[in-house]
Design a protein around this nucleic acid. Structure first.
Lengths: 163, 163
DNA sequence: TATTGTTATACTCTATAACTATA
DNA sequence: TATAGTTATAGAGTATAACAATA
């Protein structure tokens, strides 16, 4: 007679550890899922294109919002001003984005992606979308789409007392 | 006549930036949502109980899996061995967990939470669950539960070619 | 030969403080 | 007085390499 094991539905994906109460903590599940999405990003976009997650996000937000300032970018990503300065420095040194003086506010700098930056962002996004779809066969297309929307709703809770 | 603004459904929660293509990148939405869950954790569990996110997770996994090894914990959290050693050092110095020699493997150390560690983990989990529920009024209870399950499915994709 | 755990070390990333310039 | 951006500096966190002990 084989050893009986109690049925388990709550386990960590890799470490085979119980997570009975932890299972319902959203922050914990976010961290565990981020392990997967980070690995997908690094393998299919980060390493091929030489981009860190933050660099990719910053670059793409600039591509999709030409003419934005560094301060607005810092708020969007919840990072500090010196931090954004550093990442823009790196992207500018690689010729992916450009700083230009704002026409309306002489304190501010306006950001714009170069043609190379736009091309890189487009290729990276394409690669990530395909890689995520391929990696997450555990989710149906409908579930995948629903997850994205639910996460967006969570993100929109920002400012409502969460941070 | 007021200035006309084009209707926008895809914007960053805080920075008011378009994210048309970025919107469908799961890793990006994960990062944005993590800003919220991290803030909730820090405000209601991290600062009150003096716990970093990793510390909370490590402690709770030990509470729910007494007798596990450091190596297994490292795999569960996808962190390196020296990293786990450091976090266990900190938790042990605070009297929250204990290391004990394994009875079956003389290389391994077995981890166990102290009564104080168990109490702290229980209180912290309670606080997080309540705080997340309170902060995410933008999600219905059903959506909240579904989000947790979808994230769990994503996390379970680990090892299937994602990392 | 692989695995467990530790130490030492370096690197990445982030945060804080102080500053200039402009609103 | 507040905001935009930069610089300098310190701190947190992580990774790598090398090692000892055991499987």
């Amino acid at each position: 007679m084989p050893t009986r094991r109690p049925p388990r539905t709550d386990v960590t994906p890799a470490g085979r550890l119980d997570e009975a109460r932890l299972h319902h903590v959203l922050g914990y599940q976010m961290a565990q899922a981020t392990i997967v999405t980070n690995a997908v990003f690094m393998a299919h976009a980060g390493e091929p294109f030489g981009l860190r997650p933050v660099e990719y996000t910053v670059l793409t937000l600039i591509v999709e919002n030409p003419g934005g300032s560094l301060a607005r970018l810092a708020r969007a990503l919840a990072v500090t001003a010196p931090n954004i300065t550093m990442w823009i420095d790196k992207l500018e040194a690689r010729g992916l984005v450009r700083r230009q003086p704002s026409a309306t506010d002489r304190r501010a700098q306006v950001l714009q992606a170069t043609p190379q930056g736009e091309a890189l962002a487009r290729q990276a996004t394409q690669a990530i979308l395909e890689a995520e779809r391929a990696a997450l066969t555990t989710l149906s297309p409908a579930e995948h789409a629903m997850l994205v929307e639910l996460l967006h709703k969570v993100a929109c809770a920002r400012g409502d007392g969460a941070g």
